[in-house]
Simulated assay, not measured.
Amino acid sequence: MQGLDLVFFDGRLTGDVEQTKLLDDPYVLVARRGQFTGGPVPLAALDGAAVVAQPPICDQARVERVYAEAGVRPLVVFRTADNRGVLSMVRAGMGLAVMPALALDLQPDDVLCTHELAPALAPREIHLAWQANRTLSPLAVRVVELTREAVRGL
């Protein structure tokens, strides 16, 4: 955090920081429309399924631990840190994806749709953090205020 005024992070930071949890961002299964019927999809349905995923950094590593603990072993066919890239691969039929809802930009006429998983994965927690024992600049204080207002509107 050294040298940064504020940082958005998907998880609680440790160390000499102050932070505020902004929101919970639920995970959903992204699939081509019609691939699954309505209602939640069992997590076990991912066992052996082709999956497009983020690199195992940040919260993706936790998601993959949840799979392992449940005995679910998806076949990761492609990894990219680009959310749109993940969605493009799912649109092309390369596999499924499990993504946080805020990462999605799906239109009503999209060939993709989302499904809840059962059991649901714990949501990704979005935090805003700054160095502890440091006076925030007026601009940083305003960013914190605006961020809290925007989150209340979600």
Results as ranks from 00 to 15, higher is better:
Q54T: 10
D47S: 11
C58A: 15
D47N: 12
V52A: 12
Y67P: 03
D82T: 08
G71A: 06
R73F: 07
V63S: 10
C58F: 15
P56V: 02
R79N: 07
P55E: 13
A44K: 12
F78M: 05
P56M: 14
G48V: 01
D47T: 10
V66D: 12
C58E: 11
T80N: 08
V76A: 15
G71T: 00
G48E: 00
A68P: 12
G48M: 00
Y67K: 09
C58G: 14
A44C: 13
A68W: 02
T80C: 09
A53Y: 02
L43K: 15
R62D: 15
R73D: 04
V52H: 11
V66K: 00
C58K: 12
P55C: 03
D59R: 12
V66N: 10
D47K: 02
R62A: 13
A44P: 09
Q60N: 12
D59P: 01
R73T: 11
L43V: 03
A68E: 09
P74F: 02
C58H: 15
P74K: 01
N83M: 05
A49K: 01
V77H: 06
A81Y: 12
V77G: 06
T80F: 05
L43R: 03
R62G: 15
N83S: 15
A50Y: 01
F78I: 02
I57F: 14
V51C: 02
A50I: 01
P55H: 11
A49N: 01
V52I: 08
A45H: 00
L75G: 02
P56Q: 04
D59N: 13
V66S: 02
R65Y: 03
F78Q: 13
A44V: 04
Q60G: 05
D47G: 07
L46T: 04
D47F: 06
A44D: 14
Y67G: 09
D59H: 06
P55L: 07
A68C: 06
P55W: 13
